[in-house]
Write a protein that binds this DNA or RNA. Sequence first.
DNA 1: AAATTACTCAACCGCGTTCTC
DNA 2: AGAGAACGCGGTTGAGTAATT
Length: 209
Amino acid sequence: MEGSSSGVRKGAWSKFEDELLKACVHLHGEGKWYLVPQRAGLNRCQKSCRLRWLNYLKPNIKRGDFSEDEIDLMIRLHKLLGNRWSLIAGRLPGRTSNDVKNYWNTYTRRKLHSQNRVKQSTSKTCPNLLQGEFINTSKVGVSKEGAAASSNWWETLCDENITVNNTCFFGEEDAVFDELWNQQLTSIDSHFLTEAETWSQIFLDLEIN
DNA sequence: AAATTACTCAACCGCGTTCTC
DNA sequence: AGAGAACGCGGTTGAGTAATT
């Protein structure tokens, strides 16, 4: 394995190494990581170079705390996809799968586990554009049993909720999502969707048929 | 002020998937 | 079609830092 090869440097990256890697990627583009250590003059394995670029050096990476909206979306996508960090990160512009995974493993999961939430229910209806869609369970990680137990895929996206005829009941901690929902998802579009994308396209991307 | 504990996050590792020949 | 190489992902680790005692 590359990481354990003798003579290959491990551990934290220096500023100089970062500059070498950035220069190399700018010159040759991303990909062909097996060539990067040689091209950049780095005594690092290809995996290390790739990871450093994707998680830290790549332009447009967003650093700092997750916003309420990002957390809300992360939680919902995790309910739908499970630990598919790369897919979740793909819907959080500027965030890496490592960021999402780290955040989830610390703050979010601990919070969710510690809170024995008391629900004050309000209702929301599955948007028309999503009705009639269903999950390809084998591909998105929703168990067949779970899917079978649900009246439709939408139910699986709604945590601890009651769903009747495409209507989900959410708890009070979903205030942010509630607001967004009442705006017919338009504001959430502007925050999370890249140009020309729609919510239905998101689910298509997630391999929902 | 020092020691201990808790937390964060960058990085490593192993393995499954995809690509290339 | 099969084998090996390369890629990508998720789980885990550990060093550094902050908070607490």
